[in-house]
């Protein structure tokens, strides 16, 4: 099964630019379904990026982050071929993890 996480991590000199897209409904808990019933809130709360044993970026999200969330940032100290580990957890206890090679 394909991962819920898509990552692109490109090193350019000392700076690695990371873009990630995660498949997640990010339901706010304020929207009704076709039957008029509220769809319960279901959203990623924490998203973490680790490289060489160190957190390089941590996101805390609420329900106002768009469906299939996207984030972009850059960090120093990694090189091509290093592993970048990405993991998320949501408010219902769901989670996913993946590891990407920096290219």
């Amino acid at each position: 099964m394909a991962s819920s996480i898509r990552v692109r991590a490109n090193a350019n000199g000392d700076i690695t630019e990371v873009q990630a897209l995660i498949q997640h409904p990010m339901d706010t808990g304020l929207v009704k379904d076709a039957k008029g019933e509220l769809i319960p809130a279901h959203f990623i709360q924490e998203l973490k990026f680790e490289c060489n044993g160190k957190d390089v970026f941590v996101a805390n999200w609420g329900t106002a982050v768009s469906k299939d969330p996207y984030v972009k940032f850059s960090f120093k100290g990694a090189k091509k071929g290093d592993d970048l580990k990405i993991s998320w957890t949501d408010n219902k206890g769901g989670s996913d993890t993946t590891t990407a090679k920096i290219s």
Binding site: V58, A59, G62, A64, V65, Y70
Partner: peptide, 21 residues
């Protein structure tokens, strides 16, 4: 509050994301 990001040492202080309004 929509999103809050921790920026550790060595991470460039900048972030792009997509939000609901």
């Amino acid at each position: 509050l929509a999103a809050s990001y921790k920026i550790p040492d060595g991470t460039i202080p900048g972030v792009a994301n997509r939000l609901k309004m």
